Computed example of a mutant assay.
Amino acid sequence: MVQKDARFHIGQIVKHRIFPFRGVIFDVDPVFDNTEEWYEAIPEAIRPSRDQPFYHLFAENDETEYVAYVSEQNLLADDSGLPLRNPQIADYFEVNSDGRFLPKDIPLN
């Protein structure tokens, strides 16, 4: 298995390449690290390779907010400047004067 450096970083706003949602990255797995059921639920024609970074996002679309798990190949940087409304963002990030999301110091249990 080939591991590569992640193209995106924690606190970066990204959008999905195919589906209409965007969000802020709050964690990165260097390779796929979710359930087999989750992976198999993706249609084979668009199923991403496991040996790439996968990102955890506080995501949102026009209807709702949620947590998403997305392969690097399906993400693009989002430089639209549009605000994000996912309420979980405030628990993990502070926004600096440049509008960048900076991780808060959160104690690990």
Rank of each mutant, 00 (worst) to 15 (best):
M1P: 13
V2L: 15
K4Q: 14
D5Q: 12
D5T: 12
R7A: 11
R7M: 12
H9P: 00
G11K: 07
Q12S: 09
I13K: 12
K15T: 06
I18N: 02
P20E: 12
P20N: 10
F21W: 14
F21G: 06
G23W: 01
G23L: 02
V24W: 08
I25S: 09
D27K: 13
V28S: 09
D29I: 10
D33N: 07
N34H: 05
N34K: 02
T35D: 02
E37I: 03
W38Y: 07
E40K: 05
E40I: 01
P43C: 03
P43F: 06
P43S: 05
I46D: 04
I46A: 04
I46C: 01
R47H: 04
R47C: 02
R50N: 08
D51P: 00
Q52Y: 08
Q52V: 12
P53H: 04
F54I: 09
F54V: 06
H56M: 15
H56Q: 13
L57I: 09
D62V: 00
D62L: 03
E63V: 00
T64E: 08
E65G: 12
E65C: 15
V67T: 15
A68L: 07
A68F: 04
A68S: 12
A68M: 04
Y69C: 15
V70H: 12
Q73W: 01
Q73D: 06
N74T: 00
L75G: 10
A77D: 14
D78Q: 01
S80T: 01
P83M: 03
L84F: 06
L84P: 08
P87I: 09
D91W: 04
Y92M: 12
V95E: 07
N96V: 07
D98M: 11
G99N: 05
R100H: 14
F101D: 11
P103N: 04
K104I: 05
P107C: 10
P107H: 13
L108S: 15
L108A: 14
